Computed example of a mutant assay.
Amino acid sequence: MPHTDPGLSSGSHDTRETRDVPLPPELRALLTDCHRQPVLPEAPGTGPLLDNLAGWGPAGTPAGPFALVPVRPDRDLDRITAWMNDPAVAAFWELAGPPETTAEHLRGQLDGDGRSVPCLGVLAGVPMSYWEIYRADLDPLARHYPARPHDTGIHLLIGAGGDRSRGLGSALLRATADLVLDHRPHCTRVVAEPDLRNTASVAAFLTGGFRYCDEIELPGKRAALMVRDRAHRHLF
Score class of each variant (00 low, 15 high):
1 M>Q: 06
3 H>L: 13
4 T>W: 04
7 G>K: 05
10 S>H: 02
14 D>A: 06
15 T>V: 07
15 T>P: 05
16 R>S: 13
18 T>G: 00
19 R>P: 09
20 D>L: 15
20 D>A: 15
21 V>A: 07
24 P>M: 09
28 R>C: 12
35 H>L: 14
37 Q>N: 06
38 P>Y: 06
39 V>P: 00
40 L>H: 08
41 P>Y: 14
43 A>F: 04
44 P>Q: 07
44 P>V: 04
47 G>T: 05
53 L>N: 03
53 L>A: 01
57 G>D: 07
61 T>R: 04
68 L>N: 01
70 P>Y: 00
74 D>A: 15
78 D>H: 12
78 D>Q: 11
80 I>Q: 14
81 T>D: 00
84 M>W: 11
85 N>R: 08
89 V>D: 05
91 A>F: 04
91 A>L: 10
93 W>K: 01
96 A>F: 03
97 G>M: 02
99 P>E: 08
101 T>S: 01
106 L>Y: 01
107 R>C: 03
109 Q>I: 00
109 Q>D: 11
109 Q>S: 13
112 G>Y: 03
112 G>P: 05
123 L>G: 06
129 S>A: 15
137 D>C: 08
137 D>A: 08
144 H>N: 11
146 P>G: 10
152 T>N: 01
169 G>Y: 06
170 S>R: 11
171 A>L: 12
172 L>W: 14
174 R>P: 04
178 D>K: 08
178 D>F: 04
180 V>L: 03
182 D>P: 01
182 D>Y: 03
185 P>Q: 11
186 H>F: 09
188 T>A: 15
188 T>G: 15
192 A>L: 08
196 L>S: 14
196 L>P: 13
201 S>N: 12
202 V>P: 05
203 A>V: 13
203 A>G: 15
204 A>C: 14
212 Y>A: 14
214 D>H: 13
216 I>G: 07
219 P>C: 06
220 G>S: 09
220 G>T: 12
222 R>D: 10
223 A>M: 09
227 V>W: 00
233 R>Q: 08
234 H>W: 14
234 H>M: 09
234 H>P: 00
234 H>Q: 13
